[in-house]
Design a protein around this nucleic acid. Structure first.
Lengths: 350, 350
DNA sequence: TACGGTCCGTAAACCGGTTTGCTAAACCGG
DNA sequence: CCGGTTTAGCAAACCGGTTTACGGACCGTA
């Protein structure tokens, strides 16, 4: 009838073995300080009792958790379905595991990212996609937690990893311009104040790249040629539908994520049009599966996994107290031309 | 010249405010027990000092971590690139976040899953894809950590969530048989002793479904018609190549994951053959992107996200000490026919 | 005047480990 | 047989919070 079998503590083991707590602790962490016979006897008893040192208690004294946090401003339930995030996490995991750190995800718990941060037990944080309007950055900074910012807006005081978003967007826009398209729609990633100018987040950087390049070719970008949506397949479908429903008939679509591009393609197919026959679509990210979509996706490549790896490496070096001044790295992007884009003339528009 | 600015502790705040530690603690967690003026004065000072209650210390007394672990036998760097896992995690995250739990990933740290488990600070564990040969299950059980097993082999003593793998495999095999295929290859997921019979893991269950259904149609399955590989696009490519290189020329390929199926399709295309013209391919999982591949993938649907949700719900109820006997749930599978399969006669084989 | 009840706050124990002296016994060479 | 060095193990402090039990001040009331 004993409720929840009480946890076996170090004291239990010590008592049962007729030694002090110290001895038990040594048996586990410092066996050479004990007589080999005693040590193994203690270990045996511990095992027999099913003793497992409480990791929380251990962390308290050792002042380290051996885990690093991945901070996302959006709900994980949304983010995990984005293949981009999978690849990024894989990059993080690769070097984290190699260095003995486990991964903890920090996301808005019941709406509060701040609460989540304070609850989080990590030695350092990789924050992805934080925009200007996330004061949480300062909370972490004030808490003295090592941190590196990835794809974020304000990076000033913290180490950061970015990619050349604006350049990538320029490549995408240039590509469709060269194919003769002049009626272009943009599928932007949803996020707080993403449409409001002035920010310096990923969305703004890409938008600037698109817009300025198009403007350079004399193409203007009316408001209803831009739609925002979640960075997911469904988000892409909805965003494209909104543009279509507004009456616009673009011949090229520039999407800010592959998932949205795939959504757009699906929406286009659903309306009976063809890609790239009637409408060209360009993605962003070059996720693993982009080469296997129908049709294979022309997209801006960024080293997603490499970004994750670089972020953790940088974080670890910050944690080791390496740098005095924050270091910023910017990774390259490039255009990968597959089959979702084609010349505008080819379109047998009805 | 002060090295690492010492962390602000509750004692610092107490001293600065001229009160006891208790008062400070109350100010945060139990403000109604304090004079409102005192409470806010303490809070002000705490804020001014940048005090953040150490979550580890707090956990130690409260005996709860507010986070749940996701246990995977493989490295996260591999697993995260599998879209299946993304969807599953999304399901887990959805209900975990809703209930205020954050997510911690437990994977073989530097090769040792056991070490990772002991380090993990979680209130409960969802273990995915553990096969018979993972003694870690017992470690967790002995540690008294609530756990639910998903897609695992041995489920006896623990709560579990599964999917009708064998039935799904039957559907896939039946489908290609009905299309007239008699030369069938299997792409199995790699894993410890996955090829050795006798196990009861996902791989074995699916394999049994394939094999028995084919056998029922008088089709035998020679060893070189089965290849194992990682559950990834690359794994699929390699596995298919191995079959091809062995001289076999199957007209249908049954893959145990969508990622492998996509890899197979890619490999098939690379060899100049068409899908489904010359070779039909069936996947497993029905991941989000399966509908957007080239060609859209015929696959066995399983409620991946729903599996994650169900797992956490079950775990939470176990943690609340609900059940006396472990509960087991089995979710449905069904075949989704898209365009990667076609009649064998249609093949204009060269 | 004494009594019981709130209100506000404190001291000390506790959570479960690790780590720092310290001591007693065994060992050792001369 | 002696002083010095290892070896083996212990008691107690500590990590940074939370919680329990208690007490003084103040209040209205009998």
């Amino acid at each position: 009838m004993d409720q929840v079998a009480r946890r076996v503590t170090i004291a239990n083991v010590a008592e049962r073995a007729g030694v002090s707590k110290t001895a038990v602790s040594f048996a586990f962490n410092n066996p050479e300080r004990l007589n080999v016979a005693t040590a193994s006897r203690i270990l045996d008893i511990a095992n027999e009792l099913g003793y497992r040192p409480d990791p929380v208690a251990r962390m308290l004294t050792q002042r380290r958790t051996d885990s690093i946090g991945i901070l996302t401003p959006q709900d994980l339930s949304i983010i995990f379905t984005n293949p981009f995030f999978g690849a990024f996490s894989a990059g993080i995991a690769a070097v984290a595991e190699e260095r003995g750190y486990s991964l903890h995800f920090i996301s808005p718990l019941q709406g509060s990212l701040s609460r989540a941060i304070h609850r989080a037990i990590v030695d350092g944080v990789v924050a992805i996609g934080l925009t200007d309007d996330h004061p949480e950055i300062d909370e972490i900074r004030r808490a003295g937690l090592p941190m590196v910012l990835v794809d974020s807006a304000t990076s000033g005081d913290s180490a950061s990893i970015d990619v050349d978003d604006e350049g990538g967007a320029r490549l995408a826009a240039t590509h469709v311009i060269e194919l003769g398209h002049r009626d272009v729609a943009i599928l932007a990633i949803d996020g707080p104040r993403s449409t409001a100018g002035g920010g310096h987040g990923v969305v703004e950087r890409r938008m600037r790249g698109y817009r300025e390049t198009l403007a350079g070719a004399g193409i203007d970008l009316p408001t209803d040629a831009i739609a925002v949506g979640a960075a997911s397949i469904d988000g892409g479908i909805e965003a494209f539908d909104r543009i279509w429903d507004s009456g616009r008939r673009p011949t090229a679509v520039l999407a800010m994520s592959d998932a949205m591009a795939i959504g757009a393609i699906r929406a286009i197919h659903q309306r009976g049009s063809s890609v790239p026959g009637e409408i060209s679509v360009v993605g962003f990210d070059d996720v693993d599966l982009a080469a296997s979509t129908d049709p294979p996706l022309t997209t801006v490549h960024q080293p997603v996994q490499g970004k994750g790896e670089a972020a953790v490496r940088l974080l670890l070096s910050v944690m080791e107290g390496g740098h005095s001044a924050p270091v910023h790295r910017r990774l390259e992007t490039r255009l990968v031309i597959r089959s979702s884009t084609g010349p505008v003339s080819q379109a047998g528009r009805r």
